[in-house]
Design a protein around this nucleic acid. Structure first.
Lengths: 541, 541
DNA sequence: GTGTTGGCATGGCGCCGACAA
DNA sequence: TTGTCGGCGCCATGCCAACAC
């Protein structure tokens, strides 16, 4: 799938009858320097804009809503010669402390995993602020405390890569918050999508387990690093994920959505062996210190509503969409779902490390100021983090710097830093993490939005079945097309704004303002910006 | 003691022989709008500058060091007509991610308690960033985990106000991190200064307790909200804090400095009854959400190295300096010290609430943009915080707004807010917290600096006894005068910079640059800026 | 002695079309 | 079609003296 290409419409059978309007129309774009610089706005690829945006005037406010139900405002501008769609900043988020002004800085900052993790809006705001300030932030990781399950010790994760697991394998899990000697035993019964209804074709898979005691309300989805082998380890019958290369096996498992138990839409798939690890976490809580580095070439891995890039990704996307997608789920089995993420671009930690050496041809301005931070460097300690040093440099010489030295804004640097731009650039170019065994990996768990996407759409459907339309199309229509072949003006006429349409012809006459509401998932990060079709809202400016 | 007045030299007996050089020379100033605005710098009162600053040229860089050993850089300017001392921003902190540029915004932001708490630099940086962004931040509060003892549930605190406690009273304490059924029993034996040697005359008092089991390494200082009554509750023999009004009783107790046990310099004082609370915290960890409001009139209560303001404060300051200050302490009793803070300006929560209604005559600019945030609004939940609403308004009408709506910068507001400036001002003027039982209070515990102030000065003395001088005065001199009667030029001549002195006469000739090192405690908050004398360092610019 | 204000310089941010790949 | 750049305006920041209390 090419960049900027719209995700194809899913047309699998939908027993609930809600899938059609649920399927998000979204796009994914690898950010350019112009997108991320403070010099201008974010350029929306034309096809994506035409597919995802409703009819828009050349300059119009947009209200976006992410998976967490948080609304974003931004401005759409159709200008330039030739004309193009741009999203500009200078707009605030309503009902939250985040400014959309920060979008520029956030575009490439966060691994989307962080954004889709079980972060609530407040925590997210804190992180976002820390990142926008290019400073550090901390997260208290309390293993098995549901509120902070977003951090996975890197050592645990890496150890999980050393083991494959198979169907019928027995394993134990240590419950940190209870008696440390207590361990639950379960048997692995398969691997599945995390939630096929919500994210069809998601590459984030689950381990299916069944607990020995069959106790209700018992954790029933585990990540590879949460368990340790126990009893039979046949080594056969290993799981295989179709369309996945072995090099991608072992990607961090998604934390299950425990708050909204779902026992449908999962299916056991077996294919290439996955791996798991021995549960090693002993400490009560782990503090993780983040420091932000800049790299214009950092490639983030899409998660959640995955909009995939590249051909390879497309093949993975097809996984789970075959006939087995509609197999009847063992809904009574319940509590037997867990996820294993299959990465788009390999191990994310390796990706991070790689970035530091692949940053090519950056201008000093880009490196020191205009380029937003694009990677997180993680360090672990069992006590609250101290300021520690990072080792960096190119292949030939390694330097040490304070992690926080990256937090100094350019304008301050220019006035007070002893390093000149060129030497600084040289240092940053070769920046890479030399993290030892203490490193952490930060991975997401399943998004548990305050206002679940799924429910939102159910509500949307029920609401809109009366009078609402989805981007001008009645929701009762059999299918919402990708929009390419439709006439936006005609659709918009349903709202009585026949001329208030997207000015694909710049001689267009423009009517009074019209607020448009779209759904943007993970919109804090433009590289993962998924613009979803929604209904139009008539809100006068 | 008047504002800006230098703290008098303490000349109590000093068995260690280190008191003379330890006594910090510092000043405290209630911030003005000019101090906090972005329009200019921070004006240092003349007397304070002459006492605390070494000879300075009219424009010179300063390196400051706070209690945590963190260095700050800022610029001293002697200009204006008439001439005055100004501290300007635009300087970065070395070895940390904090910019001194943020000083303006931080001046009135943090209760200094937060800064002096057992925050490490990284956590502090995150908080500071969040505040400078006028957004939210979160702290994971794990009761009785030493690393995060800075947050006190408001309910616990408020309940502690409902009880008075007395000498001989027995109480229990629940150790959250251990078996929940386990409770330590102890008996209250008095109240005392937290550390008279370190902070003579501090208003932050301690509860003196003795544990039944006399076990060593046992927590021996408790806050009122940490304990619950058990057994005898005579109701007599209540503690009285001299010079304290009843209205101030019940102020949060300081968390004891457990890492540096001190059993000397405490004394039991009895006076006005204090109160305590039942320990109520049951949850394993508590998340506290902060939101920042702005108020130019918010009065922060000094803590730590207290430099007091106003006459009333002066009387309190005299407390603890009487003959009893030198009473022999029962050092063998050990483990029998706890602190109860006695506020300077009443209950801090009340103060916070009050501020919202007493903010007088603020300009829209001040309220919405130029004025830095000056108060923290706290909310509690047993789960990670969600965005919640605040109720605000004047006495006649109450409004509800999202906590984070206060995080929107002015320039953004001006462009996009539906409220105009006047109505916004009106709303903000009447802003107040309507927090229910879920509110938290954030209070400090004793400062446990990485480089304790006490030890720092010991080192300083030993170092400087050879060649160092304190602001030009030999450290072996009998006493370091307040500086008013001294001739700085003559003192500076010891450094061979006879003409490189503070330009109190503007016709002065100025020599090449000289870096001056001072110690500033809690210097992130200018209202508590305590500039401490230190030695001069010859560092060429 | 010091709080406030207006004037003014600087620089970051961001909107625009031009231009090229 | 879209990435980048120069031009330019707006505005926040911050230095300075004037002025008032």
């Amino acid at each position: 799938m090419e960049e900027g290409k719209i995700e194809a419409e899913l047309d699998d059978e939908d027993p609930e009858g809600i899938g059609k309007s649920m399927t998000p129309h979204m796009f994914c774009k690898t950010l350019t320097a112009s997108d991320t610089s403070t010099h201008g706005g974010f350029s929306v690829p034309r096809r994506a804009a035409e597919d995802c945006f409703p009819p828009l005037r050349p300059s119009q406010e947009l209200v976006a809503k992410d998976l967490h139900g948080i609304e974003w405002k931004f401005r759409h501008i159709y200008r330039g010669q030739p004309r193009r769609h741009l999203l500009t900043t200078e707009v605030v988020m309503e009902n939250s402390g985040l400014e959309f002004v920060e979008l520029h800085k956030l575009k490439v900052v966060l691994p989307s995993s962080l954004l889709l993790a079980q972060f609530n809006a407040s925590t997210l705001a804190a992180v976002v602020n820390a990142i926008s300030m290019r400073s550090t932030f901390t997260i208290c990781y309390n293993p098995r405390a549901r509120s902070s399950e977003i951090i996975v010790p890197y050592r645990k994760f890496s150890k999980s890569l050393a083991h494959s697991f198979s169907c019928g394998m027995r394993f134990k899990i240590r419950c940190e918050t209870e008696d440390s000697s207590e361990r639950r035993c379960s048997v692995c019964i398969g691997v599945s999508d995390v939630d096929r209804a919500r994210w069809p074709g998601s590459k984030w898979k689950c381990l299916l387990v069944r607990w020995d005691d069959m106790e209700v309300n018992r954790l029933n989805r585990v990540s590879p690093w949460e368990i340790e082998p126990s009893g039979s380890m046949p080594g056969t019958n290993s799981f295989i994920l179709p369309g996945t290369k072995r090099s991608r096996v072992g990607y961090p498992a998604a934390k299950p959505d425990l708050s909204v138990p779902r026992d449908g839409n999962e299916v056991s798939d077996f294919g290439e062996p996955l791996r798991f690890h021995k549960g090693l976490a002993r400490s009560r809580s782990i503090w993780v210190q983040y420091s932000i580095c800049r790299s214009s070439s950092f490639q983030t891995a899409p998660v959640g509503h995955e909009v995939l890039q590249g051909q390879e990704t497309a093949s993975i996307l097809s996984y789970g969409r075959g006939p087995e997608a509609n197999q009847a789920q063992d809904k009574n089995a319940g509590n037997v779902i867990t996820g294993v993420k299959v990465p788009c671009h390999g191990n994310s930690w390796s990706t991070l490390t790689q970035v530091y050496n692949t940053n090519t041809n950056p201008s000093p301005t880009t490196l020191l100021g205009s380029s937003p931070p694009s990677a997180l460097l993680l360090q672990q300690s069992s006590s609250p983090p101290q300021f520690t040093s990072l080792h960096y440099g190119n292949q030939n010489k390694l330097e040490t710097c304070n992690m926080d030295s990256f937090c100094v804004p350019q304008r301050i640097l220019k006035k007070h830093a002893s390093l000149d731009s060129s030497s600084m650039r040289e240092d940053l170019q070769g920046l890479r993490s030399m993290g030892g065994p203490d490193r952490h990996a930060a991975f997401s768990h399943l998004p548990v939005p305050t206002q679940p996407f799924f429910r939102d759409n159910q509500n949307l459907v029920s609401i809109c079945k009366s009078s609402c339309r989805l981007f001008g199309f009645p929701l009762t229509e059999g299918k919402v097309a990708a929009g390419k072949g439709d006439n936006p003006a005609a659709s918009a006429s349903a709202y009585g704004h026949e001329t208030d349409v997207l000015p694909r012809n710049e001689e267009q006459l423009y009517q009074p303002p019209l607020m448009t509401k779209v759904i943007v998932s993970s919109c804090t990060k433009a590289s993962d910006m998924h613009v979803v079709r929604d209904r139009l809202l008539d809100i006068a400016l």
